[in-house]
Nucleic acid binder design. Structure first.
Lengths: 204, 204, 204, 204
DNA sequence: ACCTTCGGGACGCCCCGTTTCT
DNA sequence: AGAAACGGGGCGTCCCGAAGGT
């Protein structure tokens, strides 16, 4: 029986997640010390750890939220759209979190375990495989679902299995990530993404 | 005059660099604590830091050696060969170091400064701009030339500029590399590459 | 005038004291964190610290209540009765609080100061010198008297002064108490007590 | 293959144990913060944690050393002698550690587990039961062994089983501890201990 | 010269008692 | 009375320099 409204609680949680996302994106997981989180969030340890059990859980929540957001974009507008969004200014923060997730998956066994164990209340049991760069189980699922719908609507080509198409799009996404991470220019990629899009679309 | 032969010294240095490379690749920079380095190298702190002033310098040396090696391969055998080499089993370690370098460049200002200041004795001034899969300049040129020829032979589509096609292929290659780095399976990608190929080819 | 009846207030206070006593007895002062107190009391911080200014004061109140209760038993029914009460199941909690008090008196100067300064409203000035098993003064007197009578009846040995015998018996009693506090079995002690008895009795 | 002599190592260890014993005795386990240990030992964290993995292990080592020392005294001179030694000025520190052990055994489940698991290299498998106040498995064993020897030498009475005698002596020891802990006077106890001794001895 | 071990102290995380807001 | 926020301080880790041995 909470005395304080659920909204306030959730708002605070989101506020923390937003600030933490920025800090993790800028400094990396290890570099974003609790002291730095405090400073950049403008909150005390107590405030942070009241809402999250520890730093690792905070990062996990940030990461999951980003993954879910990416999955949502894919579901609604497709993977190619996601790629374009990541190319935009506002996308780089999301991308850096994504990258940080893949890195921790490679280097930290505990994190690997926790990431694999999604909240059991979520329901559907199809989240067992990690997607591109190991970070996007939900992405794969969302992508396949959308492609299937679009194929039925005759927007997407049907001479190639949808999971091949999904693999293809993810491969391009991974390339995008690698390129952005390395700080190489991405301005010229818009026509390339047009090409990618057209190669998935049904021919007239 | 040195009591111990130069070769022995250099051999020891290389031995340390090899072990450190493996540790940094597996655990990341922060995760590879000095204690872990000791264990995995089978040496004590003294042995290691007799040859390198500190952990940061050790990582820098590892990173520079990898970058130089990649630059050398490009110079001698071309970028495509480098790609094949990175795809091989032994290449993923090199890639992981490379990713770690890009990450620290993004997040650690001190490292950025040190990385920018190359040793003055090295000389060769063209190895400073490697992308995740190597410098893309020469690759692009070669790729464009080949595509142009194939377009004239009506093998490649002509409704899209060849440099866009080249960018596209490069992007897919980057994705492949990223996938390998993450340790994810690449076997299922054959049909995907068929799709890529077909989307570059002229229709009928 | 108080909105809530005094009785309700006092009842709540006692409820808190009871739960806190159990927690301090089980976990020790430091081990009984505020969070644990909340859990075991089934109340929130606010509920607890509405009635007591801080954790230290809460412990002090618990401790004083126990000390007063012990003093009251001695005054009314004598030390031997207190012993029996402490040996009973419900007595060990009281003993553990008592041990905790002695420990903090030894190790914590602030606590020592606060314990020395009794609440001025209490009045009764003779409860300040309890030993682990209660004040030994009255016990000793009673014990000596009884022993003297039994010595005259040639039941008790006369080669040792009666006050030494009394001290001896008290020491054994203290040991019994300590053993109970530690939660160790006391069943095997019957023959030991026979031995104790025989060592006080006159030979033949 | 130690480069530094074993003696130096062991000496340092003992130095730390001595200082830690004093600190734990004065402040209690929780009260003896690592900072206080540093100050009172005149060493840095590095020095302390180089020799002991953590504070708990340090305390454990102190406690075991005290328990072993007490067992040694019992083996050589008997439990009554130990009691007299504890009554002396220098004995109180040992006693306070003993007390702190019993307290942690009562309140800390992890400590209980670690205390129960003695070094397996010790050999003889008879350390499964805790002695007085839960802290002296070795004490019981040592006591019984000595009593058995003395009984065979006709110094100790043989009309009472030795384990009853051992229980008896331990009971008195516990009483002593309780009394000392509570800060009650112990000066008059010497003749009492004479009585205890005589009640264990064989009659002429 | 090469290597090992010891020791120092800054700092990381997060727990804890307390205070403030609702 | 309950929930949220605060910040001091607890323990332990980490990197590295000093001291010592071979």
């Amino acid at each position: 029986m909470p005395r304080v409204s659920r909204e306030r609680l959730e708002a605070r949680r989101q506020e923390i997640l937003d600030g933490a996302r920025a800090a993790f994106a800028r400094h990396g997981y290890e570099g974003a010390t609790v002291r730095i989180l405090e400073t950049e969030l403008g909150m005390s340890r107590g405030a942070i750890f009241h809402h999250f059990p520890d730093k690792s859980a905070l990062f996990l929540a940030v990461a999951r939220r980003e993954a879910d957001a990416m999955a949502g974009i894919i579901r609604g507008q497709g993977l190619v759209h996601l790629m374009r969004a990541l190319l935009a200014e506002s996308g780089t923060e999301r991308l850096r979190i994504y990258l940080e997730v893949t890195r921790r998956l490679r280097t930290d066994a505990d994190f690997r375990r926790e990431w694999a164990a999604r909240g059991e209340a979520e329901g559907s049991g199809d989240a067992d495989e990690l997607g591109p760069a190991g970070a996007s189980g939900p992405l794969t699922a969302a992508s396949v679902a959308r492609l299937r719908r679009q194929r039925d609507a005759k927007v997407v080509r049907h001479d190639v299995p949808v999971d091949v198409l999904a693999d293809y799009l993810e491969l391009v996404l991974d390339g995008l990530v690698a390129r952005l991470v390395a700080g190489r220019p991405v301005e010229r990629l818009d026509p390339v993404l047009d090409l990618v899009e057209s190669s998935v679309r049904a021919r007239r």
